[in-house]
Amino acid sequence: MLASMLGSRMTDGTGALGGEGSLAEVLEGRAGWHLAAADALEFAEELPDGCAHAVWIDPPYCSGGYTETARRQARGMLTSGSVKKLGWFINDNMGSAGLVWLLRCVAVQAFRVLVEGGSLGVFCDWKMIPLLAPALESSGLRWQAMVVWDKEQPGLGTGFRAQHEVVLHFVKGTGVFHDARTGNVLRESRIPTPDRNHQTAKPVSLIERCLAVVVPPGGLVVDLFAGGGSTGVAARRLGMRFVGSEIDPGIAATAKAEISQARSVVRTRGPVAQIPLFGEGK
């Protein structure tokens, strides 16, 4: 029954995919979204096998310094202004080993809950790629691509100031895609600090562009590090179902308020073009 409902579209009369419900109701297609104030791995264990088209996460980056000591002592990767306005969030000053352990466990769960052809997307910065990529790949997922988020303006610092972040993209088996118009460099302006509801919130438009490629309308998106709710908002705007978790109850409440206000936006999808190899099909 669950498999037959994965692609179904249910609306709440406003054009949006159905409203908030329990985890079971979303999985069965009787509600549109569910967000739990819970630990990522504990929540993942509640999800059934083969239920999701994408697990799309923005975990702590643990990038507060170049050495392990600096990372543990740092107040995360944030500027002092962001911390003063929005506060600190748990786990952003883990060491590299802790982050690798956590995300490898997440990837193992993602392999289990994804449908065949489903996608895992993990936001990170360049310093963590050499450590995270092989750990995620060891879950059984295949490293498909690296998406670059061009934030259009460089950040703080000296020398070649960082202007980008990346999404490590993995697939279960042979990836199934639903939009052929999107390249692997996405230009979207970052959210100004005064407008953020979370210290590291990603633009909803950026998440929409990613999800449109890997999830069909009515498909299920999972986010185990929901933060301010950008992924949930993007999923609802695209007519997808969403379930997620956020360990901090206060941040989870903010995310739920954001997701509850989201409404679907009708978009025309491009064809899934298969580019021929070695001149075939010409």
Rank of each mutant, 00 (worst) to 15 (best):
Q153F: 13
W126E: 15
Q163A: 07
C124R: 03
E42P: 04
K85T: 00
K151A: 07
P59E: 14
A145K: 13
W143A: 05
Q163F: 00
V115Y: 03
F43M: 08
L78G: 05
M128A: 15
V100C: 08
D125S: 13
Q144T: 15
F43W: 02
G117Y: 08
G155R: 07
T158W: 09
E116F: 11
N93D: 08
P48C: 06
W143M: 12
C105F: 04
T79M: 09
W126M: 13
G157T: 00
E45W: 02
Q73E: 12
T67Q: 13
A70C: 06
G98S: 02
G81A: 14
L141R: 04
S138H: 07
W88R: 15
F160E: 01
A110N: 01
Q144C: 09
A145F: 01
N91D: 12
E46H: 09
L132W: 05
C124E: 07
S139H: 03
E152D: 12
H164I: 11
E137C: 08
Q73H: 09
M77Q: 15
C51F: 12
N93Q: 03
R104M: 01
S63I: 02
E165M: 02
G117I: 03
A36Y: 02
V115W: 05
M128P: 09
D150N: 13
L41C: 04
T69V: 09
A97H: 05
V106F: 01
T158S: 12
V108F: 03
C51M: 13
N91Q: 08
A110R: 03
A133I: 01
D150C: 05
H53F: 02
G157Q: 02
V55F: 03
V147H: 13
C62H: 04
W88Y: 14
Q144E: 14
P59W: 12
K85Y: 10
T69W: 07
E152A: 08
E137M: 13
A162C: 09
R104Q: 14
F123S: 12
V122Y: 04
G76P: 06
